[in-house]
Computed example of a mutant assay.
Amino acid sequence: MKQEDLEVQIKEGKKLVDVLESSEISVKKFRKQLIKEYSKVIKEGQNSGQLTKEEAKTLKQAVKEKVESWMSESK
């Protein structure tokens, strides 16, 4: 599924979990990949000196919590 397709369906009012399931995408794998992608960007920010280690840790935790809330709101 393309990002644009996902965005369209969400804007149409469909729940994220329902869109994933109808597309036969594992919610668990989607959650894991989403967190991985955000973490990669945070790590790049830390490596470039834009974020401290503590800021990166805080952001990673916030991302995990936000992604979890997206999944629970969608149920």
Score class of each variant (00 low, 15 high):
residue 25 I to Y: 11
residue 30 F to G: 01
residue 47 N to A: 13
residue 60 K to I: 06
residue 11 K to G: 00
residue 51 L to Q: 08
residue 2 K to E: 14
residue 3 Q to G: 08
residue 38 Y to S: 08
residue 14 K to H: 12
residue 43 K to Y: 15
residue 21 E to S: 07
residue 32 K to W: 04
residue 29 K to G: 01
residue 55 E to G: 05
residue 20 L to F: 06
residue 54 E to Y: 12
residue 75 K to Y: 12
residue 22 S to C: 03
residue 7 E to W: 04
residue 20 L to E: 03
residue 36 K to Y: 13
residue 41 V to H: 12
residue 17 V to T: 15
residue 28 K to A: 15
residue 17 V to F: 08
residue 26 S to V: 04
residue 17 V to K: 14
residue 18 D to L: 01
residue 73 E to W: 01
residue 65 E to D: 15
residue 46 Q to D: 13
residue 42 I to Q: 04
residue 56 A to W: 12
residue 21 E to P: 00
residue 6 L to C: 03
residue 10 I to H: 03
residue 61 Q to S: 11
residue 68 E to P: 00
residue 5 D to V: 02
residue 15 K to Y: 04
residue 25 I to N: 03
residue 73 E to F: 03
residue 4 E to T: 13
residue 3 Q to P: 02
residue 16 L to Q: 06
residue 58 T to Y: 11
residue 69 S to N: 10
residue 70 W to F: 10
residue 42 I to C: 05
residue 70 W to K: 02
residue 43 K to L: 14
residue 75 K to W: 07
residue 42 I to F: 06
residue 40 K to D: 09
residue 39 S to L: 08
residue 74 S to N: 02
residue 36 K to M: 09
residue 16 L to P: 04
residue 47 N to F: 06
residue 49 G to I: 07
residue 49 G to M: 09
residue 52 T to W: 04
residue 47 N to Q: 14
residue 49 G to V: 05
residue 4 E to Y: 12
residue 52 T to D: 07
residue 35 I to F: 00
residue 69 S to P: 00
residue 1 M to D: 05
residue 69 S to G: 00
residue 57 K to G: 13
residue 19 V to G: 01
residue 27 V to C: 08
residue 37 E to Q: 13
residue 57 K to F: 14
residue 56 A to V: 11
residue 46 Q to L: 09
residue 65 E to Y: 06
residue 56 A to Y: 12
residue 36 K to T: 12
residue 31 R to K: 15
residue 21 E to G: 02
residue 14 K to R: 12
residue 65 E to W: 02
residue 22 S to A: 12
residue 45 G to W: 08
residue 6 L to D: 02
residue 74 S to K: 00
residue 17 V to L: 10
residue 34 L to K: 05
residue 75 K to G: 07
residue 61 Q to V: 10
residue 69 S to T: 10
residue 38 Y to F: 14
residue 72 S to V: 13
residue 32 K to S: 15
residue 75 K to D: 15
residue 55 E to F: 05
residue 48 S to D: 15
